[in-house]
Design a protein around this nucleic acid. Structure first.
Length: 477
RNA sequence: UCCUUCUUAGCUCAGCUGGUUAGAGCACGUGACUGUUAAUCACGGGGUCCCUGGUUCGAGCCCAGGAGAGGGAGCCA
């Protein structure tokens, strides 16, 4: 007989039909009722065991975490908490779970503890909901771009370009690191390394993405990204996933429109397809909020926040306007910022970004046209000579979720800027070729996938939205 | 990397001004009960109080150093 997924079984009209269910025990109550879960939904199916006619050694083995196979009849439940249940005819223990050793209990565990047993936390309601949502969002991203005719490009994970300066890199080598070959000057001789040069893990697929956009018009990448920064925060990982679309014939406004449309599309997709999981996380978050002092509580529930995001357009302002708002704010005048805003050109601190998003506009904000000194070399220079066509999308509670720009397509301006910033035009000659042969207006952005998952799930630590987080001093599993 | 808080049973957490044998709930074990919803009731086992050193008649508690974790900041997605 074919196995029925729990999610399916719960939706089936019971007519005393036979059904085969397999899954893991969440709890066993009253020597009689098994709450069984197979990961298809957070809702368990109740298995009713006739304990008077079941071998006691079998009953003893029905413990939290054990894998079971049950052949039984699907009936309308006599009890209150569920509509259908399965009366077991035959019950097989597929895999035992020693009750004294299995760390998960039918009770609330701290996220910190579950992070230490990340190999088992998939079996909890919270992480079940989080990772089904992560899957839905990943799928929705591909669906969105596919429907728009974008070509999905796999940019390299090992790269020899360390010119972009997006962050500290992880070196890739097959040298014996205790004894690497040296050249005549006593320096490590990378000519003898696997690739014949110094190589690293990618910090961004953007530059390669631009090459493809100059052929397919619209492309995107969606892959792992590595940064060896010593960042210990709730929103940084050493290994994370990033979506990087790159579009020919787009200016900055087209770029912002696409980013906003993408974010709304994937949130809507999660809402339409994983509403139960969102509801579960909504309740979970609401309960957590209750523990906080009133002033620290957020004014929106998770569902309200997502709905609000879907129904309102993102606020678009320039960096210069943002500085004006911050300068004039009571917060600044009363010196409540740790870093006071008093002149044009300073980089915005996260307290400033949070003020704009969470206090002033109370919705996602797109900041554009930053001073060129604080942005990357490839961003298109404005006529004012001071600013570049950059855009950052700031989300409440998350901060920067998207960073992008219109790219500098004018060869001369690009080369001048690279020289100013000490970036080797020789090493990036291949990149400059796009500006030599058929250069055109184009734009793109990077969307941090885990930050998106954070926003949609309402989780607050990025380590809880990726299965096995890699952070400084931590690479377990 | 900086600032800050924390580390006591498998988990979540109490532990008074430094004082005798370190507690609770859950989990686990045994028994009872049997339409339960994190089942309930009774009984029971369970501790390197993060580590090292110091102060003291006496340290879970005070001091110094170290390790790990949480939160905030920087870097950024």
């Amino acid at each position: 007989m074919k196995r029925t997924r729990v999610k399916e079984a719960l939706k089936t009209t019971p007519t005393n039909q036979d059904i085969l269910i397999k899954g893991w025990v969440r709890t066993f109550r009253n020597n009689q009722f098994i709450a069984l879960n197979d990961g298809s939904t957070n809702n368990n199916i109740q298995i009713v065991v006739d304990f008077t006619n079941t071998d006691e050694t079998i009953l003893k083995r029905i413990t939290t975490g054990a894998a079971l196979s049950i052949l039984g009849t699907l009936i309308a439940s006599q009890g209150k908490g569920q509509t259908v249940e399965v009366v077991a005819k035959t019950l097989e223990i597929l895999g035992d779970s020693d009750a004294e050793k299995f760390p998960l209990q039918p009770k609330k565990h701290s996220l910190e503890f579950l992070r230490e047993i990340a190999h088992l936390r998939f079996r909890t309601n919270t992480f079940g909901a989080v990772f089904r949502l992560r899957n839905a969002l990943a799928f929705a991203i591909h669906k969105f771009f596919n429907e728009k005719g974008f070509v999905y490009i796999h940019t390299p994970i090992i790269t020899s370009s360390d010119a972009e300066g997006a962050g500290e890199m992880f070196r890739v080598t097959n040298f014996d690191i205790a004894n690497p070959p040296k050249d005549e000057n006593g320096n490590v001789d990378f000519k003898q390394d696997f690739f014949g040069k110094n190589t690293n893990l990618t910090v961004s697929g953007q530059l390669e993405g631009e090459l493809a956009a100059m052929a397919f018009s619209d492309i995107y990448t969606f892959g792992p990204t590595f940064r060896a920064e010593n960042s210990n925060t709730t929103r940084h990982l050493a290994e994370f996933w990033m979506i990087e679309p790159e579009m020919a014939f787009y200016d900055l406004n087209d770029n912002m429109d696409l980013a906003e449309e993408l974010l709304k599309y994937v949130i809507k997709y999660a809402w339409d397809n994983n509403y139960e999981d969102l509801e579960f996380l909504n309740t979970r978050l609401a309960e957590e909020e209750k523990q906080k002092p009133q002033q620290d509580r957020s004014e929106f529930t998770l569902l309200e926040k997502l709905k609000f995001c879907l129904e309102n357009s993102f606020e678009r302002i320039t960096y210069t306007q943002a500085i004006e708002i911050l300068k004039e704010s009571n917060h600044n005048k009363k010196k409540k910022f740790q870093y006071l805003v008093n002149e044009w050109g300073v980089d915005l601190q996260s307290e400033h970004e949070r003020y704009l998003v969470e206090k002033h506009f109370k919705k996602p904000v797109i900041l554009t046209d930053y001073p060129k000194y604080i942005k990357a070399f490839y961003m298109r220079q404005n006529d004012d000579g001071k600013t570049v066509r950059a855009m950052d999308i700031l989300f409440p509670g998350i901060g920067e979720i998207v960073g992008g720009s219109q790219r500098e397509e004018r060869l001369e301006k690009l080369v001048t800027r690279m020289n100013e910033m000490n970036i080797s035009t020789h090493e990036l000659d291949w990149y400059l070729d796009t500006r030599r042969f058929g250069a055109c207006e184009h734009a793109g952005f990077g969307l941090g996938f885990e930050r998106l998952v954070l926003f949609v799930t309402g989780m607050t630590n990025i380590r809880d939205v990726i299965p096995f987080p890699r952070t400084p001093k931590n690479c377990e599993f």
